[in-house]
Structures are given as C-alpha cells and as structure tokens.
Design a protein around this nucleic acid. Structure first.
Lengths: 255, 255
DNA sequence: GCTTGGTTTTCCGGCATGTGGGATGGGGGC
DNA sequence: GCCCCCATCCCACATGCCGGAAAACCAAGC
C-alpha cells in the first residue's frame, strides 16, 4: 500500500502533512485527542504523534490537561499579522461600529478565499436578526449580500468556476440558475451594491457594497443584514456604500 | 561549516524550519521578499523558496502583486480556532464592551504565554489615554495591571524565572526590585486585583483582575487603563473585578 | 482480581525526501 | 552601459523522516 503516486491519505511532501494536521481542526472540532487527529487528518498515528510533538514545542498547538490538542496561542499571534485577516479587521472596525450604531442592525465584513467567502468581522446589532455566522467561518459566495459583491468582482475564472459548479439552495428565493445569477452580478457591478432578499433565510435581507484597495481592486465587502420587509433596501444601500467608501479610503493598501 | 551539531541557523528538524519561517514575520515586518525572509529566518534562500512555495499552495502564506510574502488568510482561519485566542475573545467581548461603555476608558484582555503577556483584545475608550498595545502583541508581565495579575497566579517556576531575569524599566515608578515585586504580587493574590500606577507610562494607571476557568485556575486578565489621578483606583477595582467574575462565569471552560 | 478496547508512547532500519550551493534569468537604479 | 539585488531552477548527496509493530497505559466492566 505504499506504491501510490498521489497522496490521498498516504505518502507526500513533508510540510503538506503538517498543514493537513492543522487543517483537521474545525469549528466543530477545536480540540482533539491524538487518535482523533490521526483519523480526521488521514495520517498514521505515529506520524501525527511525532509532528504534534514538534508543533507543541513551538506553540502552534497546545495541550489541555485533558490531553487533547488545540490550536496554540503562538500560531494565533502570527496569524494576527495576516493583512486580509486582522489587518483588514482593525482598520475597518471603527467604521463598522458606526454603521452598527446608526442602524442597530447586523454588520458583516468578508473577503473572498478561493470560491468561498470568509467572515473577517461581524457585529451583532442589538435585537437584530440573529445571524448564523462566525468570525473565521466560511460561506457560499452565491447567496449573501457580501458574497454577491465579492463574486461580481472576482476574476473571470473564479466566477465561471462558481457558476459552473453546484449552487447551494437555502430558501425558495435562493437564485440557483447560473443565467439569472449572471444577470444579478452584472447589476451589482453596475449599481455598486448588492441585494440578497431572503436568499439565505426566510426572514433576512442583506445589502452589500465593495471595499477597494488603493489600486481600485475589490478586496472585501461590507454588508448589512436586516429583517425582510421592515426597511426599503435602497436607503440602506446608500448607507452601506458610504461606509464601504470610507473604509476603502482608510485602507490605502493593506500591509 | 556543516559539521555543527546544533542549529543556530543551519541544519535541523524539518518542521522546525517551516515554523521558523512563520516566526520571521512580525508587526514590523508583516510583508517580506524572499531574500528578506531568508535573512530574517536564518535559512538559506533556496530552502526558503521551496518551503514558501508549499506554504503558498496551502494558503498559509500569500503573495501580493509586489511579490512579497504575507501571512495567508487560510492560516488566520485555523488560528481563529485557538481557544485562548479568538475563543476567549469572543466570549469575553460583550462584557468588555459593557465595561468600556460604562467607564469610557480603555479595556484590555490578556493571557500569559511563557514569561510574557499577549493581548487578546483591546477596546479604545473614546477620548481615553491612547494605548500602545496591539491585538496579538506581547508585553512584559511585570508592569501592566493585567500582567501583574497573570504573574501573581503563574506557576512558581515561571514566576521565579521572571523575577530572576532582567526586569524592564519604563518610568521612574516602574517596580524593578524583585523583593518589592514579590510583595506586590502577594497583595494582588490577597486583594483579588492589581494596580499599576504609572509603571508603564507617566500618565497612565491600570487596574487588573483575574479571569478563572471552571476549575478555578487563572486563565486570563481584564484590565482598565485610565489617566493617572482622575479617579480613585479602588472603585475602579470593584468594576473590573465584577466584569472579570462575569466573564469567568460565562467561560465555563474554554474549548 | 483479570480481561477487553481504547488510547498514547517509544523504537528502529530503509529509503524516500529535503537539502543548499551555485548557475540562470530579470529588473531597476545610477 | 554597468552593478546590485532578487527570484527561480537544478541536481548529487546523505539526512531525517516514515510508519508498522510492540509495549506501556488507562478506564471500565465482568
């Protein structure tokens, strides 16, 4: 069983395995025992043991007194240097808070990673629709206000990839037809904002707008999530766009 | 020159080098060219090149159009699963915001990592003393309100280590005498809170209190940073302690 | 007590894998 | 034109990783 050329669970480049180890952690499994890690990463136990030992020494992993492994603080420290993560978050935060204070609704900040979206920050408005998102969590690009913005301005190959692949449905309003979606994205580009009406849950509507870097490239999206039917979307769009522009200005370039 | 047994820049375990690579990034150097990385990590260029390539593929690193390497979003995502990082931050945030709203002062949340302190969150009070801290940043345990709390409840060997080593001085009020510091820490344990009066800057005073997990172990510290001389420390201490207890309760255990 | 099913840890010989000096090609700045 | 710095590629060598297997461990359960 050691003959395979590929590595769908077996042999492979050294570093790749360590990374597979880290990748085994998820929101549902933030703490795992050695053998659990072995199972979820597809690596032999003894290999995991050796590697985990090294990661432990450096601080990339930690071990509670229950013996289980968790992501270490040291790793969190370096990761805090990610320009598109904490970097972006820090510069945008004041503006997001303004937006949150004024509207009392949920505010979200997201970037695109491959064919999905990653939430970089979310502020829960007092008494607003409860949102099911988590900072650091992923979501489909095709449904949310922020996702539509990011998808609309994504490179062609990525967009085709997403439109070609299976498009998840969340409610009866979710747009899953590639042609309609394509038209919707054209609107987003033309209008400078997106509207997702009950495409994720039956009672929520979200409005998104693009954040651009110094060279004009879209690097992130702000969005506002409100109850469906309480406010007209267009005035909201003006608010969100204003915030997005302010953040773009404050950004310059993200280093 | 390849005979050395140790690895102060030369040969060594595989993974360790990759980690050294990540460790080369810092707040001052969040984006580096290949050769810069090589220099700062002490690894040969070709080695860095190969490794960076792999890290790039996985998403642990990213590369801007200026060609420089940065910490990647993917790494930030997994790091967001760190219980003592984002995990702690998320659960404590509402309480920290309450504290911030009520006092309109700077609020900080920190944990101990080795012989130093790492800031996990900081909320800048409107018009409060500007603080020089950064989320994900480090600081000495011996001077700040939060640090004193963490040091007071650290394991004996760690405390001895810190008290034995050189103790940095920031102002003329900084306590650098091990004996006095030891007495101070005893007070902290007895009182349930700490006070750092102008030990970091000439105009700031901070008050800290311990956050405990379900088993009663101190896992973090909240602190309030105010202008020296405007408010009596003791009423503040009551506030901070209350917050700390609330957070402790909300924590249960951090997974 | 002993047995059973799950762990975590240690060991070791063979060979796959990473290693890094040096050569190649590019790109500015002066 | 020159020079300096940077990224990328290549390849012979031996280092350090690999993972099966066995042993130590722990907690129930009979």
């Amino acid at each position: 069983m050691r003959q395979a050329g590929a590595n769908p669970g077996g042999t492979g480049p050294v570093l790749a395995r360590a990374l597979r180890l880290l990748g085994a952690f998820s929101a549902e499994h933030p703490a795992m025992t050695l053998s659990e890690l072995s199972r979820r990463s597809g690596l032999p136990v003894s290999t995991v043991h050796r590697m985990a030992g090294e990661l432990l020494g450096w601080g990339a992993l930690e071990r509670g007194d229950d013996g289980r492994y968790r992501i270490g603080l040291r790793l969190w420290e370096v990761a805090a240097l990610a320009p598109r993560g904490q970097g972006l978050r820090e510069r945008a935060l004041p503006f997001l808070e303004d937006l949150s204070q004024i509207t009392r609704e949920n505010v979200q900040l997201a970037v695109r990673e491959g064919t999905e979206l990653v939430f970089v920050e979310r502020i829960a408005g007092s008494g607003a629709v409860p949102v099911l998102t988590r900072v650091g969590g992923r979501f489909a690009l095709t449904a949310t206000g922020g996702g539509l913005v990011l998808l609309a301005h994504a490179p062609d190959d990525v967009r085709e990839d997403v439109l070609g692949g299976p498009i998840p449905r969340f409610t009866e309003y979710t747009v899953t037809d590639p042609a309609r979606l394509r038209a919707l994205l054209a609107d987003v580009r033309a209008n400078g904002y997106s509207i997702s009406d009950r495409q994720v849950t039956d009672d929520a509507l979200s409005v998104g707008a693009p954040i651009r870097d110094a060279r004009g490239a879209v690097v992130a999206a702000v969005s506002l999530v409100v109850h469906h039917g309480v406010a007209a979307p267009h005035p909201l769009a003006a608010l969100v766009r204003t915030s997005a522009r302010a953040i773009s200005r404050a950004l310059g370039s993200i280093d």
